[in-house]
Design a protein around this nucleic acid. Structure first.
Lengths: 138, 138
DNA sequence: GTTATTGCAAACAATTTGCACCCAC
DNA sequence: GTGGGTGCAAATTGTTTGCAATAAC
């Protein structure tokens, strides 16, 4: 349950937080604060700044992470053990997740050559999804 | 010469544009509009909005690309034949380029499994650079 | 009861834009 | 000379913050 997630991190259990986490859980793909708020408002009443504040808190506590930033907008998702990457469709904006991160070996090789201690990476693909490709052919 | 780049794209050759391109050329690593402007002002007089406007124009014309967005700031670089990726140090913000993009095979495999036509990808690593690691040990 | 969380409005920072002037062609 | 480029200031947009009211523990 997401109440456990919260108390384990020393955060108070509030309607807003429970709702945010369950939305992210159900969604299983990156979402912007604004869109998350739209879904949130259908169920709960609350303020957009509560969303922002909680996304920040949850990110600091490693419950949530910023998956990517596109056109000045941050996209959030639950931080999972096995993290994921996405492909974003340039036409319709659809974001679909990729299973299995392919970066393991690449990353450790890079640590050797650069001396960096690599803590995370961002990998996003952009392209055109099958449906939009069909539309283009018309 | 960067004048050729501009006329080839049907853009007028102006002081600002020549300067922006040569700064990006010399730098060979992603830079924010604001920092680019600081370097720019040492040589030329001009306005920050000219920088933004030209970065936009040059991006539209595929001369420049947004390498990544971090904390709400876009980092630009010349769009090169062989594109590059970077590692960003979480402590000092240093950005260092990685030679050779490792994504070739991964990308084509992904096109097969997802049906997407992949046009580009973003790959950024974050970690701690050797110097900052030393400082932490103190 | 105490402290963290929320709502609201105002503040911010990066980026964009409207308009008058200016320069490249 | 004309149309695109620029400077300046004002607007816009995603996000953050101060403060008083409220809810979690």
């Amino acid at each position: 349950m997401n109440e456990e997630i919260l108390s384990k991190k020393g955060l108070k259990i509030t309607r807003a937080r429970k709702s945010i986490i369950s939305i992210l859980e159900e969604l299983d793909q990156p979402i912007s604060a604004e869109n998350l708020y739209k879904i949130f408002k259908e169920k709960e009443k609350g303020n957009l700044s509560t969303i922002y504040r909680n996304l920040k808190t949850l990110t600091d506590k490693d419950v949530v992470e910023i998956a990517c930033e596109v056109d000045g907008i941050s996209y959030y998702r639950l931080k999972q053990k096995k993290h994921k990457h996405s492909i974003i469709c340039k036409k319709c904006g659809k974001i679909i997740p990729i299973e299995n991160c392919p970066m393991g070996q690449i990353q450790s090789k890079l640590e050797d050559t650069t001396g960096f201690k690599i803590e995370s990476h961002i990998l996003e693909f952009r392209g055109i999804c099958p449906e939009c490709q069909k539309k283009e052919e018309k």
